[in-house]
Amino acid sequence: MNRRANEAGSTVVYMARHPLRKKFVRDWRLLLMFLPVLIYYLVFCYLPMVGIVMGFEDFRMGSGFAGLFTSKWVGLQWFKQFFSSVFAWRLIRNTFLLSFYSLIFGFPIPIIFAIAITQLRAKRFGKVAQVITYLPYFISTVVVVGMMTNFLSPSSGIINQMIVRMGGKAVNFMSDPHWFRRLYVISGSWQTFGFNSIIFVAAIMGIDPELYEAMNVDGASRWQKIIHLVLPMISETIILLLIMTLGNLLNVGFEKVYLMYSPAVYETGDVISTYVYRQGIENHSYGYASAVGLFYSAVGFVFVVTSNWLSRRMTGSSLW
């Protein structure tokens, strides 16, 4: 024990005296091990960050990535074009509202479900219910949107068949702008509530049984136990997750919107990321699309940094 402490001490002194080169000699194997990962990050994460320059250029695809250095510099032209276009406000509003409604509607459900499942008297049924309800989480977005599209189809969908049977008129849900946000939020919640409840279930299971006993002694009702014991005990988890969710508030799932929307619902369904996709990949306006994408990344950056700062201040923990 003593010997090891001495050794550690002498290593510190040694390191202080012999800087960088010695450290390389000591840790080169770790560095070598990390090298493939380093290359991955440089190529697929940092090189695209360099590519942001495109947002300030009249970028032409023909020249490939090298076109970065040869394309004409246009300064803030694309940003001005975006913010003066009729799309800017609509896209920002749609992106924000889609996430906001998902949060308002989607965040409390897993908590309620977790409380219900842990308060359930039939313990085995609770376990089964938990396994069943998190299954949809692993189903691909394509399948979820595919099911939704077919269930809601005006001609053959089961929902509309029911509506017609009950004397109503078939609704073309998927191409009705009024329905887009609701469908997005409901299907999202359907897919994730079971999985998202797992963390709350674990937090509730972690509550000391003696606290329940103590409340029993006081003659507390089940409702009182939920309000005065369970909720306070999981409040930290709730706050932490809420902050994390806020950090990713603008990360609207591109894939899902892309699979769900059509020009008929652009009014409510078109979000910044799908617009970037259409402008860039489909219309080849690379410079313009990169500029809009950069605006999106920058706003996202502010959100994540703020939420992480909040989390560290309020709960003492953060993602990293």
Partner: peptide, 25 residues
């Protein structure tokens, strides 16, 4: 290099080049 590399990696969770530059790469 633990701290700098850690930052190097984690930073990509905060910020990304976006769809179009990634597509180009």
């Amino acid at each position: 290099l633990r701290r700098p590399l850690n930052f190097f990696v984690v930073f990509t969770m905060y910020f990304s080049g976006g769809l179009i530059p990634t597509y180009m790469v």
